[in-house]
Design a binder for these strands. Structure first.
Lengths: 196, 196
DNA sequence: GTCTATAGTACGATAGAC
DNA sequence: GTCTATCGTACTATAGAC
């Protein structure tokens, strides 16, 4: 149960949380409406009353997840100010979310949204991903980071963290993901920091 | 036309190359057998003569791609010996393949294989990905790299390169991918190298 | 708003002629 | 080995009672 937005009706919430579980467990196309009915306890008729069609479920799920992520990122930006602190805390949040809600992080990082939401712009142009880039830009402006192409710097720093999360989600790590927080943030940051 | 394995019959090759194009353009589940018939020019009957079912097409495609990648990696390993040279040349090969055959690289890096090949082990446990890790292990053994957890080091170095390739495949870069080769390899390597 | 029952369709896979 | 024609099925989505 990751999505808790109370603006949504109970039926919608149940369906969205079931959709998150099932889409990540079996994939969007392997999840039928009858599967959602069984898992959520909401009937076919009520699902189609709440959502126009199956694609609209995926759209609403994506929107709910991105909204939740943005609000958690905003809390971090309000509490931490330096480029490094923000990088570290954003990485910490991603790693802990991947640990506690693997489906949610998988849906954001890994899902081929284009396959079932063909009109959605790529996820890396969404606000939460732009925020990551802004942290790197800030570090360059403040002279803490080496001057280089912004995309290269963002890929090298956050890319390292995201790759490790990916490996964790694929069960390729010996220890639980949060154990790697210190070493992966320190290492990835080293690739772009002036003083190390 | 990326797959050119001449051990395979002409019909199989046609179907596999069409499958690569269509699976990456529209996704596995949005590609019907009639779509493959139209795109490849091979009839339904012949497709089912060459492959047991639709899933077997995806399996054969994966196997052909991994074989091709392994042989190109082996050539690099035979020609270059130092850890850095191998890291650089493997990165160069990935970036140029992503540039010339985006579907092939997308299929390897990005596809949610689990959705249509549920029995396949995760791609990051395949030989080509293990080879990447070995290059990092070699660098540590030879004292060129900082001693640290191997997975962290591999994620931080190759993760940066892969993340940039991902951004390139999603059209988020201003310049063509190969233009970034020097800067991304230098930057990502810096995260784990002793002398920088 | 919630449900059951069902219509309509598109797909994967097969049969069987050449 | 290649083809066309078609079967059976499982799905999305709707209709209509409560």
């Amino acid at each position: 149960m990751y999505i808790v937005n109370n603006q949504l009706s109970s039926a919608k919430l149940k369906v969205l949380n079931s959709a998150l579980d099932l889409f990540m467990e079996k994939g969007y196309f392997n999840t039928s409406i009858p599967d959602l009915v069984k898992h959520s306890g909401v009937s076919t008729g009520s699902i189609y009353h709440a959502f126009k069609d199956k694609e609209a479920i995926a759209e609403a799920l994506m929107q709910a997840l991105l909204e939740q992520i943005e609000s958690e990122q905003t809390a971090i930006f309000n509490q931490y100010n330096s480029s490094w602190d923000r990088f570290y805390e954003l990485s910490r949040w991603m790693i802990e979310t991947a640990h506690k809600h693997p489906q949610a992080m998988q849906f954001i990082l890994n899902a081929r949204h284009k396959e079932f939401l063909p009109n959605l712009p790529p996820i890396c142009s969404s606000q939460p991903f732009l925020n990551l880039r802004d942290v790197i830009q800030q570090g360059m402006d403040e002279g803490e980071l080496i001057e280089m192409d912004l995309m290269v710097a963002a890929a090298s720093s956050f890319g390292g963290v995201m790759r490790l999360i990916q490996l964790g989600l694929d069960n390729m790590l010996e220890q639980p993901l949060p154990n790697y927080l210190e070493s992966i943030t320190k290492t990835s940051w080293r690739s772009i920091a002036k003083t190390i």
